[in-house]
Design a binder for these strands. Structure first.
Lengths: 91, 91
DNA sequence: AATCTATTTAAATAAAATTTTAAATAGGTG
DNA sequence: CACCTATTTAAAATTTTATTTAAATAGATT
């Protein structure tokens, strides 16, 4: 829950790819697991990290758990990066 | 040497702080080690990772090794982040 | 040349992150 | 209610990453 967690969570390629998948819309844990070659338990671990870092949100429906993107945390990240001179990011 | 390495390298707080230090200008390995409570060998390890990820450059002068920032790699990072909707980053 | 200073490299160790396996939970369905 | 499906949790095993310790390198100083 902070910049440090955001960077840490984004350092894993699988977790970044999960976020990319979720751009299209919400998915259940099972649907995400199908897209990647990973066991449900391992996926659950990554989803928990993403959720703790506020990069995704979850809600239950029937006996599924849906996950969806939460992009608001990226703002903090951009601010950190921009301290190194964000002049070239206009376009 | 790619987006994956950039994220991985930035996931460590010490390494991020080293980059922040280097905003002010170049520093020798020793000067950096003084700013943080870390042994020269451990620092050297982190500097190597930062260098491999193209986040810093080094050059030798006398028997010192100077390190300086290379911010160009951040562009790639911004592009990745902006796929999630960079509308709010105008200001 | 001998030695000192700054730094790196290598090997061993320690710590942290990830995966696996097995068991638990919780909500639908027959 | 007994059972199936989706998912999580917990503990152990594995893998990856970081630190320590000791030795090596390279250039400066005497």
């Amino acid at each position: 829950m902070g910049l440090a967690d955001t960077f840490k969570v984004l350092s894993d390629p699988l977790r970044r790819n999960i976020l990319v998948c979720l751009k299209e819309g919400k998915l259940t844990a099972g649907e995400i697991a199908d897209k990647f070659n990973i066991t449900p338990a391992a996926l659950s671990y990554h989803l928990k990290l993403l959720k703790n870092a506020d990069l995704i949100m979850e809600y239950k429906l029937k006996n599924y758990i849906y996950y969806e993107l939460n992009t608001s945390v990226f703002d903090e990240l951009i601010i950190w990066i921009n301290q190194f001179g964000g002049e070239n990011n206009e376009k």
